[in-house]
C-alpha cells in the first residue's frame, strides 16, 4: 500500500513538472510581460532595468528552474493587472470556488446515487421514467442556460434567492465561508444546483446502468436464493459492486467542476477563481493564468490519487494485483 502511494506520488510529480513547463512557456510566448506592466511613457532604459530586475534576461533554463522553485513554494509572482501577489489573490478567491464545487459535488452524489439506485431497482416504475426524462434535460441543457433560467424563476419572478454574489461570509483564518450564514447559504443554492446538475444526472444514469448490470449477476441471484433482505441485496451487495466506475467518474467530474466553475461563476458573479481567471485572460495577466493552470492540475492529480486509493479500499481484488506488481 505504502509503496503504491509513493509510486503514485512520484508519477504525480512528473505530471506537475510537465504542467509547470506549459505554464512557464506562456510567460515566454504569450506577449511581453514588461510591456504589460509598464505604461506607455516608460523609457527604454527603465524597461531594461525592470527586465533585468525580473530576471527576464537570464537563460531560459535558469528562468524555468526559478519558476519551479517558486511554484513549489506557492509563489507565482505579482499579478500584472492587480499589482498584488498572485498567491494572495488566490487565497481570497479559492475558498469561494472550492466551497461552490464541493457543495455541487456533494449535492450531485447525495441526490444522484439514490435516484440511480431506485431507477436501477425499478426500471419500469413511473418514478424511474420521470428521473430518466429529467436526467436527459440535465445532460443536454447548457450550464449557463440552467443558471439564467434559475435566476429568472427564483430571483427575478419569485424573489426568493439572490441572483448574484456570495452573501455574508465568515472568515476562519484566511478561509472564508458562506455556509454558516443564512444569506450565504441562500446565495449558494442556485450556483450549486447549476454547477452540479450535469454531474447529478451523469452520476444517476451511471449508477442506474451499473445497477441494472449488477442485478443480473449470479451472486445477486444467489443472494436472493439465500433469502437475504432486499436492503442487504441492493445496498450491501449490488451498490458496492457499482462503486468502482462511480468513483472514477465522480473523481474526474470533481476536477471538472472546479475547472469549469468559470461559467457558473460568471453567470452568478460568484467571486471565485473562475471569475479571476476570466479577467486574467482579458488582460493577458500571465502569472494568474499560469498559477491557475498549476492549481487546476494540482487538484486533478490529488483527486486522482484519492480515487486510486479508494479503488484499493473498495475492491479487494485490486490489492492482489498491486501485491503482484510490487513483487510482494
Amino acid at each position: 500500500m505504502l509503496a503504491f502511494i509513493i509510486r503514485r506520488l512520484l508519477q504525480s510529480m512528473i505530471v506537475m513538472f510537465f504542467v509547470a513547463m506549459v505554464a512557464f512557456l506562456m510567460f515566454n510566448y504569450v506577449g511581453d510581460p514588461v510591456h504589460q506592466m509598464v505604461g506607455i511613457d516608460t523609457s527604454f532604459k527603465d524597461r531594461e532595468v525592470l527586465r533585468e530586475s525580473l530576471g527576464l534576461n537570464d537563460p531560459v533554463p535558469l528562468q524555468f528552474v526559478r519558476f519551479i522553485t517558486n511554484a513549489a513554494k506557492f509563489e507565482f509572482g505579482i499579478s500584472y493587472q492587480h499589482k498584488r501577489s498572485v498567491t494572495g489573490l488566490f487565497k481570497e478567491r479559492l475558498p469561494a470556488t472550492l466551497e461552490l464545487s464541493f457543495v455541487a459535488a456533494f449535492l450531485s452524489l447525495v441526490v444522484g446515487v439514490p435516484m440511480g439506485v431506485y431507477a436501477g431497482i425499478k426500471p419500469d416504475g413511473w418514478l424511474s421514467k420521470i428521473f430518466m426524462t429529467f436526467s436527459l434535460v440535465g445532460v443536454s441543457l447548457p450550464t449557463f442556460l440552467i443558471g439564467i433560467l434559475l435566476i429568472y424563476i427564483f430571483a427575478v419572478t419569485l424573489g426568493w434567492l439572490p441572483s448574484y454574489g456570495r452573501g455574508d461570509v465568515v472568515n476562519w483564518g484566511w478561509w472564508s465561508t458562506g455556509i454558516t450564514t443564512w444569506s450565504g447559504l441562500k446565495a449558494l443554492i442556485m450556483p450549486a444546483i447549476t454547477l452540479g446538475l450535469f454531474q447529478l444526472t451523469l452520476i444517476m444514469r451511471l449508477v442506474r446502468s451499473e445497477m441494472l448490470e449488477v442485478l443480473r449477476t449470479d451472486y445477486i441471484k444467489f443472494a436472493r436464493a439465500r433469502g437475504l433482505s432486499d436492503r442487504a441485496i441492493y445496498f450491501g451487495h449490488a451498490l458496492k459492486n457499482t462503486l468502482v466506475p462511480v468513483i472514477t467518474i465522480t473523481g474526474l467530474q470533481i476536477g471538472s467542476i472546479i475547472a469549469f466553475a468559470i461559467i457558473t461563476e460568471t453567470v452568478f458573479q460568484w467571486p471565485g477563481m473562475g471569475l479571476l481567471f476570466l479577467q486574467a485572460i482579458h488582460n493577458v495577466d500571465i502569472p494568474i493564468m499560469a498559477a491557475y493552470l498549476m492549481l487546476v492540475a494540482f487538484f486533478f492529480v490529488v483527486i486522482n490519487l484519492i480515487v486510486d486509493i479508494l479503488y484499493y479500499v473498495v475492491d479487494p481484488r485490486l490489492r492482489l494485483d498491486l501485491g503482484k506488481a510490487n513483487g510482494a
Binding site: T217, D218, Y219, F222, A225
Partner: peptide, 11 residues
C-alpha cells in the same frame, strides 16, 4: 448455482 466463480460476491 452452476458457476461458483460468479456465485459469490467478489467484494
Amino acid at each position: 448455482f452452476q458457476d461458483p466463480l460468479t456465485s459469490l460476491n467478489p467484494l
